[in-house]
Amino acid sequence: MPEFRPRIVAFVCNWCTYAGADLTGTSRMKYSPQVSIIRFPCTGRIDFMLLLKAFANGADGIIVSGCHPNDCHYSSGNFHARRRWIVFRALLDFLGIDVRRIQFSWVSAAEGAKWARLVNETAERIHGLGPFTDYHRLRGMGVE
């Protein structure tokens, strides 16, 4: 059996975490290549449906990250996002979907090291949880 390499999608805001991940690169810090970033203007833009789509299409884990509270480029997009995630997590947990699959965080443009640490720790945790077959097997017949 081939070694399990988790696939992790990171939904990040343009202004803080995307820039923070840039800094990780500029500082040449290393992290797990199993994480890929999709860029959004703000965490406030991130539709919960996109997280479901990521799981449905094979993601084993998700990172959602934006600006720290009070640092949002748009002043309050991250606060709105935070409310959304509070409710979303409660719902997933109620449905028996393991919320440890989703890591929420605030990573600022200055926190290149935090980004590397976050990715590695998340990758490790998802690796420990194994493939998200519980969800992936829902892709039964007729799914595009």
């Binding site: 509270p69 709105h80 935070r82 509070i86 409710v87 890591q103 929420f104 965080s105 605030w106």
Partner: peptide, 30 residues
Amino acid sequence: ERFAFRSGMAVHGENAMSTFKPDDPEDFIR
């Protein structure tokens, strides 16, 4: 529990999901 909010109580009520408090809980965010 999290936002001390109940829907359908006021004519001009805000919506829990279109507002926020700066100190909303965030124990799940790193």
